[in-house]
Design a protein around this nucleic acid. Structure first.
Lengths: 331, 331
DNA sequence: CCCCGGAGGTGGAACGTTTTACCAGCAAGA
DNA sequence: TCTTGCTGGTAAAACGTTCCACCTCCGGGG
C-alpha cells in the first residue's frame, strides 16, 4: 500500500510537503506542487483517512441516526443530509434505530468509536442523557425533527402540536363529530404531540378531548395501520380518523376499503408527512406536509457549521410549520 | 479524552493487557479482566476506532453505494444491509450516486480513504474499471442487483430479462397487441435488460419486437413517469404500458387518470419492484416482485464472509427470479 | 554591508491502538 | 533437580498522517 512517504520519495520532497500539498496547497510552490501531484497520480496514492483522523484529532465523517429507514419521511431527510455532506466532502454513517432505544444506543456507540465529527439524530426515546454523553466526547449533535433538549444545541423541528391540531380541525370543519386517532408508540414524541394537537382541536370546537379514541400501533408502518383499523372496525366506527403518519394511514385505508367502508363518505381519513405516495393511493390521501428534504439539508448545514466554525457558530432552534394538503380522503 | 493508557494506569496493568481485554478477553485472567472492565466503565473510555484501524490495517466499516436513496427499492435493500452489518458490529457508510457516475466516483473515493473493509454497490454505469481499482486497494466488493463483472467477485442479482419478459407476456396474455415501455436512462443496465425482456416476450408471441415503443425517462421517479406519460398521451395510446420500475408506473398512472384514460380498461399498466405502495395506489398496481430486503441481507453476509474468512470464502453469483404480482392495473 | 522577514521546505515527535517478542512464575514429568 | 510448557502479563515498535519548531535561501531597507 502506497503511503505519503512513497509519494514524497518519488517526488523528491519530504512527507511534510506532501501533506501540505494535500491540505494547504497554497503554502507550496507551484513547481513542487505539480511534481507532488504527478507522483500522487502515478503511484495511485489515496490518503489514509484513519491516520489523518488520528493525528488531526477529528474526522470528516458525520453520523445519521434515524428511527425507520423504511419510512419515506426519513429517506427524504437522508437524501438532504447526503447531498449537503457529500458536497462538503463529508461521509455519512447511517444508523437505523428501528424505534429501539437499545439499538440506538449501540449505533451511537459505533459513531462515538468512529470519532465522527457530529451526529444528526431523530431520538427514539426521551432520554437526553445518552445524547449529552456524545457531547462529552466532543461530538456535536443536531436534533432532527425534534425540539432542542438544551439551549447550547441546534435543532430543526416541525410543530407537531400545530400539525395535529390543523389536521383534526380540518376533519371537524367538514362535519365529523367523532374522531379516532391512530398513533405510533407513545414513547415517540411526535406521536404524543400530534395527539395533543388533535385534542386541542377538539377542545377548540367545544368538544370533550377525552372522547378522542386513541389506537396505539406498535410500529409506524402500513401493516401496523391495517391492524389498528381492525381494532376500529371491531367497535363503533368514528366519522373521521387522524393517523400519526402516512404509512399508518395507507394501512388503515387499505383495511377500511377491504371491509367495505367508503372513504371519505363513511369515514374521513387524514395522514401526516405527505409522502410522495399519499397522492397516488387508492383514495388520494389528505395529509400534513412537512419540508422534509429541507429538514435534512438545514440540519446538516447547521451541524457542519458548528464543526467547521466553532467560534462564530450560533446555535439555532428552527421550527417549521406544517401545511395541510386536502385530497379525496377528506373531501 | 481518555485513552487506553489511562485505563491501564487506573487498573494497574499495561496498555497491552487492556487491548487484550478489548479484543481477546479469553486471554486474560478473570480477576484482572474485571479490574480493567471496571476502569473502562469508571473512566467512560471509548476505543478510538481510527487508531485501531490504522494499526490493525482494517476497519469495521463497510460502504453502501446506491443509485437512488429515495427509491423504496434501495431503501429496503439498505434496511437489509444495515440489519446484518449492525448485528456484526459493522458501521455502514452510505453513498447516493443519484445515477451520476461522477458522484459515484467521488463516493467511492471517500470510501477508499476511509479504508472500508468492503463495498456493496449497485453500479450506476457499466465501467468495471473504477470498481476494480477498489480491489487493488484491498477492498472487497459485492455487486448488488447487478451480475458479476468477473469470476473472483460476489454478486447478488435478479434476472431482469426474465422479469421484463414475464411482465410483458402477462400484458400480452390479457389481450394487448400494442405495448409501450417507459424506462429509465438506458445507461442503467436494469433498464436495458428489462426492455430486452419485453422485446423477447413480443418475439415469443409472434410480434415484431421493433414495434415496442420505448420512452426513456431521465430519472426513475414518479415525476419523470408523469412526463413520460405526457409523451404517450401526445401520440396514439398503446393498449398496455410496461414501466421499468414502480415509481415510473405510479407517475404514469397518475398522469393517465388525470387525462381521463381508464386503467386498465383503456390502458393496462404494470410496474417493477413491487414496492409497498404499489398495492395501495389509486388503481392497485401490478408489478414484478423482487426479494429486496433479502438482496441486502445476503449481499452483506457474502461481503462480511469474504472479509472475515478470506481463506475459506467461496465467491458466489446469486441470481434470483422475480415474481409476477397481478393486481387491478392489469385485470 | 548587515540584518530582517517571508517564502518554501525539512525533520521528527506525536496521535491511540495492536501486536510481536519476551519474561516471570509455576506445575508437571522425568 | 532440571527441563518443558503453559499462563498471564509487559515493553516497545510499528501503523500513516499532521504539525510544530526549525532551517535556508533571497530580496530589500537601513
Amino acid at each position: 500500500m502506497v503511503s505519503i512517504k512513497d509519494v514524497a520519495a518519488h517526488a523528491g520532497v519530504s512527507p511534510g510537503t506532501v501533506s501540505n500539498v494535500l491540505n494547504r496547497p497554497g503554502k507550496v510552490a507551484p513547481a513542487t506542487r505539480e511534481r507532488v501531484e504527478a507522483a500522487i497520480k502515478e503511484l495511485g496514492f489515496v490518503r489514509h483517512g484513519s491516520a489523518s483522523t488520528l493525528r488531526a484529532g477529528h474526522s470528516r465523517t458525520i453520523g445519521l441516526s434515524v428511527i425507520d429507514i423504511g419510512n419515506p419521511f426519513f429517506t427524504e431527510v437522508a437524501a438532504g443530509v447526503e447531498d449537503v455532506a457529500s458536497d462538503l466532502g463529508y461521509a455519512v454513517i447511517l444508523g437505523n434505530s428501528a424505534g429501539s432505544p437499545d439499538k440506538e444506543d449501540r449505533n451511537l456507540r459505533v459513531l462515538a468509536e468512529h470519532r465522527v465529527r457530529g451526529v444528526l439524530i431523530t431520538p427514539s426515546g426521551e432520554d437526553p442523557g445518552r445524547i449529552d454523553r456524545l457531547r462529552e466526547h466532543g461530538i456535536s449533535v443536531v436534533l432532527v425533527d425534534h425540539p432542542a433538549h438544551r439551549p447550547d444545541q441546534c435543532a430543526v423541528a416541525v410543530d407537531d402540536v400545530a400539525g395535529g391540531r390543523a389536521a383534526v380541525a380540518h376533519l371537524l370543519a367538514r362535519g365529523a363529530r367523532s374522531v379516532a386517532c391512530v398513533t405510533g408508540p407513545l414513547t415517540i414524541r411526535q406521536c404524543v404531540e400530534r395527539c395533543d394537537g388533535a385534542r386541542a382541536a377538539l377542545r377548540g370546537a367545544g368538544l370533550d378531548p377525552a372522547e378522542l379514541r386513541v389506537v396505539e400501533a406498535a410500529t409506524m408502518t402500513a401493516r401496523a395501520g391495517e391492524k389498528a383499523a381492525a381494532e376500529l372496525l371491531a367497535g363503533d366506527l368514528p366519522e373521521a380518523v387522524f393517523c400519526a403518519n402516512d404509512l399508518l394511514a395507507l394501512g388503515v385505508l387499505r383495511a377500511l376499503l377491504r371491509a367495505g367502508v367508503r372513504v371519505p363518505e363513511d369515514v374521513a381519513l387524514i395522514g401526516y408527512d405527505d409522502i410522495d405516495f399519499a397522492a397516488a393511493s387508492t383514495v388520494s390521501l389528505s395529509s400534513m406536509r412537512q419540508p422534509t428534504y429541507q429538514l435534512g439539508r438545514i440540519a446538516t448545514e447547521l451541524l457542519l457549521d458548528e464543526c467547521d466554525n466553532p467560534d462564530t457558530h450560533a446555535h439555532q432552534h428552527i421550527m417549521f410549520q406544517p401545511e395541510l394538503v386536502a385530497r379525496e380522503s377528506t373531501q
